[in-house]
Amino acid sequence: MRHKRPHLQKWLALLPLSLVFLLSGCSELTVLDPKGPVGQSQKDLIVFSLWFMLGIVVVVFALFAFMVIKYRNRPGRNDKDYDPDLHGNTAIEIVWTVIPLIIVIILSVPTVTTLFDLEKPPESSSDKEPLVIYATSADWKWFFSYPEQDIETVNYLHIPTDRAIEFRLSSADSMAALWIPQLGGQKYNMAGMENTLYLQADEPGTYDGRNGNFNGEGFTEQTFKVHAQEEEEFNDWVQETQDEAPELTQEEYDKLLAPSVMDEQMVFSNTHLEWVDHGTNDGRDYAIKRHRDAYQELLHLENEIKGDDKHE
């Protein structure tokens, strides 16, 4: 057997290093650059866990490098270092069972508390009532209904800053997930049931939102823009919409429900909740009853360059 020099651990040692380098440039990564309290709490949790993980990786990599370098078979190796019958040591085995257990417990505590916090509107805006928005996914577009304001948008969203948004998630057909990475994590939209997701933006700006859960041919293009505005600007927008936007008729809505990709954005001065709420048991088969046959034909979607301006 030839004794190869162990290149292995050399470049493996580069891995944790590269991790450190990459992490330092991470503040630009969307998920680690949140614009609201929900995303912030999730980022905090991720970063908190990342330190432990980095510690584990460093320990294991160091041990690994030590073992592989020191105990490789090479000429002139000291035979005292070789103990082929060594097969256990209760003390050390208890140690390396208990330490991971402790780490798991340490990680569990913030995980559980954050989980329960995410079920409530963020604390920072508890002085205001959350704004309720029904977010309905339909193959492959988004309907956002503001029942209190009595307006509805398609494929874009206006929200006020510093106020919790209470999304009521449902789907007209396939299962989707509302995901606005810079505001917080996703939750599923399903037909016949309603999920609640609280998100909040603290900084005005335009954020990318999309469907996170694969649901067929048009999935990639089921995206939308979130415009977070100061409360006053938002109210202006609401006022303007109520005054100027056209009415959505049930007939037109039914047409929009047909499976298709829609680049354009639309806005209406009423909501489809007047005739159907897909999140209820009665509304669950509304779309499929009307458009069952539409799925027989494929759309043959390709990546058109014009699709890019959706992402700016």
Binding site: L15, L45, I46, V57, W179, G184
Partner: peptide
């Protein structure tokens, strides 16, 4: 080990809302 530690991160449900499907 790299796969395992990120598995633990994914197991933290609150953070998973961001990792999920990504």
């Amino acid at each position: 080990v790299l796969g395992g530690v990120t598995g633990v991160m994914l197991g933290m449900a609150a953070a998973d809302y961001q990792f999920h499907n990504s």
